[in-house]
Design a protein around this nucleic acid. Structure first.
Lengths: 272, 272
DNA sequence: CGGCGCTTACCCAGTTCTTGGTATGGGAAA
DNA sequence: TTTCCCATACCAAGAACTGGGTAAGCGCCG
């Protein structure tokens, strides 16, 4: 960011203001799509994609997906069900701020398949990108990406502005989706949560029973009811859902810095 | 955003770059605190507060708390345990982007107690503020606020820049907290990851085998080796560890690619 | 070429989980 | 007070998982 670029920066910052104003009167996803397409080019990108998902596990979750990606990529992506192994989406759970796709390797481990997938994207015309993730626990999660085609480079000076633009677009999308009300999350009783927590820590029902000083059957019953509330059939799904809901957290499970591990617990621990 | 303010805007955008550079060499919370204090004034605010907490049931105290709020407010806030009913914190669960405290009423319903609390803050010297929320599901939640004292107004032109600064500061704090493991951990093969992914989605080994078109025994073997790499003994711990590492993501699990199940299909499905 | 890692596949014994029940007592709400 | 929810506890059958092996085929790399 040197002085000679200041004109460009002023322009881009002004773009944020204009974009924000434009979104104020946006009442329809189509309008948002159009606005994103315009500013995408103005910022020095070729493509954009915005996705917003509700976190409701039960109801038909409203979803918004706007993009101008190449048709071939969209076909491959949905046809081969690549969404389930998209490294960009995975990285979104590990950053507060937007990240260039080249940095993904420092956020999450990249497998061979991941690199391959990024390469296929490149062949389809998606060379490098900048993805902005946002999460509202229990409510919604969204991403907004800006992408350049092969032969161009990410417009580094625009990235901070792109971050703001993306966040504004996601906020607009959130408003359009009508996700103002918090979806009813499955509520667990204290005892259920406690059993769940020890389960997440890798304990069997029998071990948990000893820890809590109750019968194994009771632990099984608590977990049974907890599974029913989340409408899942197995432990791993239960743990996952509860974690996503915020009922438990990684810090509860792993001995993260800050939480002092009790020597006794550590000694008993089977895992981790 | 008119042309005559462009100089100021360039300066503030430059502040972001400088701030980012400064944080790159930050190894200690004290450094971050100092940097925040400086940029806080430069942006036209009087106070700042940054809090980062791990997602955990038992998380009483934040992982990191930096601020230069008036001592009296801090005393009241902690003394009366106001964090649990802080409207600013509640609003953080409802916005993708930073919000001025005056807008809180449009994000969440404000009770009488909420207004009272804001008033007490005002009496302590915290008149109006701009709070930037960020969440990483299951991992951490953070907020960064910039506040003006009574008699001053929020520097509206600085807010977009404040948003960027806050996000950078939170990212820095996340790095300092040790909540993120660098992806140098157990890496899985693509096939192991695939089996794990279907396991996380609630499928049994037999079901996964059918989906992947391989033998049940092979799926079991993949999961067995994956468990060994993570040194855990059960599925739920495996899923949790992989999720924490970023080997799989929430988006991978909850958003099954392709078909959105209708209510009927959903009923037939075993897990969401 | 030889080793190494990945994928595939199989066996077996023991343990654990899942799913369907029932039942008692306490406490909160209607 | 009656009803509902919660925590506790138990039974039983079948499915699924865990942990211990072995091994063949393939591709990559030194």
């Amino acid at each position: 960011m040197t002085r000679d670029r200041s004109n460009g920066m002023v322009m881009t910052l002004q773009l944020v203001g204009d974009f924000s104003t434009e979104l104020d009167s946006t009442r329809d996803p189509v309008d948002l799509e159009r606005a994103l397409g315009r500013i995408c080019g103005a910022l020095g990108f070729d493509h954009f994609a915005l996705s917003l998902e509700a976190c409701a596990l039960e109801a038909a979750s409203p979803e918004l997906l706007l993009h101008n990606y190449p048709a071939e990529w969209a076909r491959i992506y949905t046809g081969f069900e690549l969404a389930g192994r998209d490294p960009v989406r995975r990285a979104c759970d590990h950053s507060f701020i937007g990240f260039a796709w080249g940095e993904i390797g420092s956020l999450i481990p990249l497998t061979r398949g991941d690199r391959q997938m990024l390469n296929i994207g490149r062949e389809c015309g998606l060379d490098d990108g900048f993805t902005v993730p946002r999460n509202l626990p229990g409510l919604a999660r969204g991403t907004c990406s800006f992408v350049v085609r092969p032969g161009r480079r990410l417009p580094a000076p625009s990235l901070p502005v792109a971050e703001l633009v993306a966040a504004l677009a996601l906020t607009c999308a959130l408003g359009l989706s009508g996700l103002v009300r918090r979806p009813a999350t499955a509520r667990l009783t204290d005892r259920q949560r406690e059993c769940l927590l020890w389960t997440a820590r890798g304990k069997t029902a029998a071990e948990t029973a000893i820890i809590l000083g109750i019968s194994t059957e009771t632990v099984i019953q608590h977990l049974k009811l907890a599974r029913e509330r989340y409408a899942v059939h197995c432990k791993q799904s239960l743990v996952l859902s509860a974690l996503f809901d915020g009922v438990i957290g990684f810090a509860d499970v792993f001995r993260l810095p800050g939480s002092r591990p009790s020597r006794r617990l550590r000694h008993q621990a089977r895992d981790g």
